[in-house]
Design a protein around this nucleic acid. Sequence first.
DNA 1: GGCTGTTTTGCACTTTTATTTCATTTCCAT
DNA 2: ATGGAAATGAAATAAAAGTGCAAAACAGCC
Lengths: 155, 155
Amino acid sequence: MQILDQLDHKILAVLQDNNMTSQREIGDAIGLSAPAVQRRITRLREIGAIKGDISVLNPDYLGSQITIVVQVEMETDKVELIAETKRIFKNTPQVQQCYYVTGENDFLLIIVVYTMKEYEGLTHQLFFNNPGVKRFKSSICMDIVKSGLSIRIPS
Amino acid sequence: MQILDQLDHKILAVLQDNNMTSQREIGDAIGLSAPAVQRRITRLREIGAIKGDISVLNPDYLGSQITIVVQVEMETDKVELIAETKRIFKNTPQVQQCYYVTGENDFLLIIVVYTMKEYEGLTHQLFFNNPGVKRFKSSICMDIVKSGLSIRIPS
DNA sequence: GGCTGTTTTGCACTTTTATTTCATTTCCAT
DNA sequence: ATGGAAATGAAATAAAAGTGCAAAACAGCC
């Protein structure tokens, strides 16, 4: 894992906000030529500093979804069990995000479904069918106040 | 808010996975010409079905951060208080995500900081300084098992 | 059923952006 | 200072996005 310099950081800061910004525009902003910016971006992708490039959709246009925050407590902390559970959560499309955390609860999931029936099915698939799951607690999201993946970039 | 057809859905499904996909490639995949795809994408942006276009960064390249899941319980549910609290959470860069939820806790926050000292400062700024906050519970994230904003698109 | 206005499309073309090439510069390490 | 590696900018090429326009598809209406 290589070290990134200030220019890389500035480029990343721009791209994590808007990756349609042209190389020329970025270059003007940070004092580099467009090709220099392009080579740095290529490198940032190659080394994996940029994991991907996506459009962020407005869920309102895709029918009404229900966002649910789920806290999952496991019976034990056996490595193999945790690893398998992670694998299952990761491969479930409705699971938008999954955090393995300290404290009473072991997992925190952000789940997005279209109907409560769909969610009920999911709970069987993800929790009731997993003997390692001791209990889970669901909270319905009334408002997604803030949503994103941006991280503050040290300058 | 207009209705989207199957072709729009397919375009959105591609873009939320990789928005660098060329219009020609999308067109080939769904049976449209590149210009037709371009016009649809333009429209999807205009109406706000596409909220933005971003690069997803790998945090590992930006120094070691700490991801913390925070559950916040409020004293009361006064509209004005909740609204102001939402505003504060939304405008704090370290707050990556904020959900207003049902149940015992009112807010769920995903917070990303670089040091525990930074987090301690944040807790004062966000919680101790807010008389509406009754209590908050922090869980340290040991593993970001899955992270993203994708939603399943009905086909 | 056929007509008409509207919308969407594909093709050809223009413009913009990304990418490559290459000579020059910068930056270290010696 | 000096040689070598890495990064840069200018110029040229390649690729993609965006535009104009005529044709096709479609919906509503007589």
